[in-house]
Nucleic acid binder design. Structure first.
Lengths: 136, 136
DNA sequence: TTAAACTGTAACAAATTAAATTACAATATA
DNA sequence: TATATTGTAATTTAATTTGTTACAGTTTAA
């Protein structure tokens, strides 16, 4: 992964899980994570798109967990935020006149994909509920 | 991972493996990868530090594989280039007054570490020799 | 014994990406 | 209808990655 979106999303989800259906504002979430509320809202849009959370607009609005925490795996969260493959897309443009340069991206991408599958399988063994329970 | 160092290192190693002990210049390597030779030299320093390659200075100098390719696993390469943990270090500084904020980095780091171990175990199953053989 | 072809490395610049900020419209509530 | 909220675009700032330049040090071979 590249940025900290996985951490931010997980943080949001744990807070919502612990809130027990109560609506939590993006300002509150941002305060706990210590980042800008706009980033939280952007992340919430993505989480909502994946059906993990719901939001209510307007005064006294906020977000809530829209799916039981034991039915959200960390792999689901990972897949929801990931943009490129794990080890970084093969984005170089190697020399096509070199026999190795010509092929390397193909082989790297295969490697990246199979490696990511291993990771996803591992993350799918842990649910948000389990992760959240690790907190006091 | 963050950048493309894993890809660059693997590319270098495959080229050296195929060169069969012959010295390859950083300019040639850079030409195949299509990046600046200085970046290649920096990467070579790291690869050398880990005992994967050797270099000879001066005219007609260059680099060579210093260890049999079947004794270098892709996990070795990964560990040699990785700087932070896989999913990104938990580098936010969450609000310590929030019960979740206070603990999240601990739990994230545990998760990251165990996940990375899974990945390393997977990568350790493939050697540079095997990877290199995938090329025509 | 010197010119040429290399590596090593520092310092700086440019490009890319991530994060924060600002601003304001839209929505819902009391 | 004032207020608290989300939604979202545009912009700025900061951080990170990548590339460039420059030159000293090393080795070779004519």
């Amino acid at each position: 992964m590249n940025n900290s979106r996985f951490a931010i999303s997980l943080h949001i989800l744990v807070l919502l899980e612990k809130a027990n259906e109560e609506l939590i504002s993006s300002d509150y979430l941002a305060g706990s994570i210590n980042i800008n509320p706009v980033l939280v809202r952007k992340e919430l849009i993505n989480l909502r798109k994946h059906g993990f959370v719901g939001t209510k607009e307007g005064k006294n609005g906020g977000s809530y967990l829209a799916k039981p925490a034991d039915r959200i795996s960390l792999a689901d969260v990972y897949l929801a935020v990931r943009q490129e493959t794990l080890l970084g897309i093969a984005k170089n443009t190697p020399n096509p006149n070199c026999p190795v340069g010509r092929e390397i991206n193909t082989h790297l991408n295969e490697l990246y994909e199979s490696t990511e599958q291993v990771l996803v399988r591992s993350l799918s063994g842990k649910s948000l509920a389990t992760f959240s329970r690790e907190f006091d």
